[in-house]
Nucleic acid binder design. Structure first.
Lengths: 222, 222
DNA sequence: AGCTAAGTGAATCATCCGATTGAATTTCCT
DNA sequence: AGGAAATTCAATCGGATGATTCACTTAGCT
């Protein structure tokens, strides 16, 4: 985190790391260049020297964190592509939840803030990074939902699953903030048992998917 | 929105309304007093005169919008408390989703931003306003999940349902922003058919709840 | 060693922020 | 109408922000 000894590329790395943590904690507009440089042990001028502007640092920090996160948590959860669809669904849900819960990789805490308070990044990033992941999930869902599933039902199920995983991002406090931690009991439970929640989301969603499939095949309007 | 003719209490109302819209659109720290006063057609000093500070205006605007929203969308969805639990679940999901989707009442867009970038308000507001609603939902879920359901399973199911409803808040763009609206197809579907999504969330979740219940009763570990 | 380019640092820029002032204006009551 | 209180207004406050400057140190190469 702090500059260890030598300089140059080191400073840039430190700035990126500090920026990641601070942007994840306080969002873009509430984080100041001085905060970042102070945490990185760098001079105020360093940001504009290495990145050109606060916004470009923001973009670069996010992108780096996002790719690190994807590398650490492969989206398929390590389940091979020829495994049964149920297992692949399980893998993807596990990967998503643990990715979101990973406090070492604040990429998705930044993404969460981007969703709530979009900067110019949102569109670009969504299309480029998150879109493909959603499409892979949709393919798994199409298998589970059967051949005649309307596209809208696929999207609804994708939204149901993704949003349950996103739930992890709320109340994931980063270190340093002086929150008295009197959050409601329900979020406490989830925070304390992320693996349990991941398991729940899989079972809950699998039942939901099967219900959607049978209601389609039984032609129960919809 | 603009002062029509006479002043006094009118200004205060206009400030609250303008603050609601701007805080919902850009969040607390990215919204300036000048923005608010300009939109409300008031003088810069008006905020500190009527509310004391930007933060107090924020709190008051949110509280007003929240209560308006609850009044417009009763949390039980109009389903009487002696109706079957399934119907009450349906009512609550409907109410939640339409409440979140209501662009006239930006209270929950502000809440969404509060979750992502908490100010000092979050704790107070959660405990005071959202907590009771969650507990009412938990009571419905306990009925549906059976008498021997562990408390954690109730919270997990509550989180699953609430988070699916929260999904509505993402991509709910407020007017004025110059977004090219090239959001991904899935969110487009949801935005275009909120009633359909609400129906989906109910069926999807009901199946999930039943699965959790049977896995408890069949003692399939968990 | 000597030179050049890359990188750092303290100080400072113009700008914007939220808040305050005090005078001017309006509203309300008698 | 007349005066007191409530409200609005332009102007301005100190402070913080993002960005920039320019003198300096260091790294890398011949």
């Amino acid at each position: 985190m702090w500059k260890t000894g030598r300089n140059s590329q080191n400073t840039k790395e430190c700035l990126l790391e500090a920026a990641c943590h601070l942007f994840a904690e306080k969002g873009f507009s509430a984080t100041t260049n001085r905060d970042i440089c102070s945490r990185a042990g760098a001079n105020i001028a360093a940001i504009n020297y290495h990145f050109g502007s606060k916004e470009k640092l923001y973009a670069e920090a996010w992108r780096k964190a996002f790719h690190n996160s994807l590398e650490k948590h492969p989206p398929d959860g390590g389940v091979p592509p020829d495994a049964p669809a149920e297992e692949r669904l399980h893998g993807r849900i596990q990967a998503m939840i643990h990715k979101f819960a990973d406090k070492e990789n604040p990429a998705f805490q930044i993404a969460h803030k981007e969703m709530a308070v979009p900067t110019s990044l949102l569109k670009e990033v969504k299309v480029e990074c998150i879109g493909p992941l959603q499409e892979e999930m949709n393919n798994v869902l199409r298998e589970l939902l059967g051949p005649e599933v309307p596209e809208q039902q696929v999207h609804f199920c994708q939204a149901s699953i993704e949003s349950q995983c996103f739930r992890i991002l709320r109340h994931t406090r980063t270190s340093g903030s002086i929150q008295p931690e009197t959050v409601s009991a329900s979020s406490k439970d989830i925070e304390d048992d992320i693996a349990g929640y991941a398991d729940h989301v899989f079972r809950f969603s699998l039942a939901g998917i099967k219900a959607v499939r049978s209601s389609i095949e039984n032609d129960t309007d919809y």
